[in-house]
Amino acid sequence: MKELRIATRQSALAMWQAEDLQTKLQNLYPNIIITLVPMVSRGDQILDVALSKVGGKGLFTKELEVAMLENQADIAMHCIKDLPMYFPESLDLYTITESEDPTDAFVSNKYDHFDQLPQGAIVGTSSLRRQSQILAKRPDLKIEFLRGNVGTRLGKLDDGQYDAIILATAGLIRLELQERIKHKLDTHMCLPAAGQGALGIECRIADTEIHKLLAPLHHVDTAIRVYAERALIKHLEGGCQVPIAGYAQIENGKISMEARVAEVDGSVVYIEKAQSDLTDSYEQNVIIAEKMGKDLAIKLVEQGADAILEKLKADL
């Protein structure tokens, strides 16, 4: 192989992620030319409507996938939390890189901590997951719609449109905007989205040579956690913009996971937790992780989570 082409969205964060991947691959394979293929996704163009109402997560991946299917690019780097559960027939997710901090970040120019927000303060987010968990703790707050790339969202905060906004910690760290983080929301208060902080590389199933090139970048522990979290979403049939949270951790040879489904107004929050021993086999651990995610989804449905999700689907 003489050249490897990386499809990427043109947002600052997506470009950072693609350029970081480009550097890592170039260091591994100095004799291969690693190039970027920037493009604008429909999700980047539609900024005034919730994603759930215009096509969901696939809006961020479709153009990149078409580029691979039409041989205009070889691989694509994605935020795992933005990935749909299913891929086009000839494409798949082959590499999951080491995760950055998966938490949500409290960002404000007025207040140093979430607990300092006064009654009726305006908080910006377009995530129903964040909204539902924030309102469960503080039903007095006013949640207002906020979309756009990281720079756009920070600009709206700086213009005084919000008292605070909630962003992914990982994105701010990657863009070297850590100074904007007042504090990271405790996962007990705001459990992360499935796959938050992790990045994945999609490519053609037939390109086995590329699979081998990507293998050194695959991070085993992150992948096992991501498979657990995505299994939860898959079995709850949760698309984009649903109030589902899933967070898995690996420690001392065990995987533990917490999952939540909540009413959008925070009036009801269903919670399930699980823990399991891991083995020395990566393949077996993936099976264990995916079973954990599925089992938690089943338990949430038994509590009543399916009624919440079905009601949301009916409203779309």
Rank of each mutant, 00 (worst) to 15 (best):
R153T: 04
L157K: 11
I96L: 12
I134M: 06
K142C: 07
A136D: 03
D158M: 14
D112N: 14
D159S: 15
E100A: 12
G160I: 13
K156P: 02
G151N: 15
V107D: 06
R153Q: 15
S127D: 10
R130Y: 00
P139N: 07
Q119R: 03
M85W: 03
V123M: 06
G124A: 05
E98S: 11
L83C: 13
S132V: 02
E89L: 09
P84M: 08
L157C: 12
R130D: 03
V150G: 02
R147K: 14
G120Q: 08
F114A: 00
P139A: 04
K110S: 11
Q116K: 12
P139D: 06
L141E: 04
I122K: 13
D104M: 12
A105P: 08
L154M: 12
Q116N: 10
G148S: 12
Q133K: 01
Q116D: 13
L93H: 07
P102T: 09
G148F: 13
Y94Q: 07
K110H: 11
Y86Q: 12
S132A: 15
R129P: 00
F106R: 01
I122H: 09
I134G: 00
K110E: 08
T152L: 10
A105S: 14
V150H: 13
D159K: 15
V107R: 04
L91E: 09
D140C: 02
F106M: 10
K142N: 13
V107L: 13
S90M: 11
I122M: 08
L83S: 11
H113L: 01
A105H: 09
I96M: 06
Q116I: 00
E100H: 11
G160F: 14
Y86L: 07
A121Y: 02
D92Q: 08
L135R: 00
V107K: 04
R153S: 08
G120F: 04
A121C: 04
P88R: 11
L135C: 05
K110W: 01
D92K: 06
P102W: 08
L135I: 01
S132M: 03
F87P: 00
Y111F: 15
F87D: 00
S127C: 07
K156G: 02
R129I: 01
E89V: 12
S127Q: 05
T95V: 14
S126T: 03
L141N: 04
D92R: 09
N109G: 06
E100M: 10
G120M: 05
F106S: 05
Y86A: 10
L128C: 01
K137C: 01
G124S: 06
E144H: 13
L91P: 11
S99W: 02
K142D: 11
S108H: 02
A136L: 01
L93E: 06
I96D: 10
E98K: 15
Q133S: 05
L117F: 02
Y111D: 02
G148L: 12
P84A: 07
L117A: 06
Q131V: 02
V107E: 07
E100K: 10
N109L: 11
G160H: 11
L154D: 06
D140F: 04
S127L: 05
L128A: 03
Y94V: 10
Q133A: 03
K137S: 05
E98R: 15
D140T: 09
F145Q: 06
L91D: 09
S132K: 03
R153C: 13
T152Q: 15
D159H: 14
G151W: 03
I134L: 15
Q116T: 02
M85C: 02
Q116F: 07
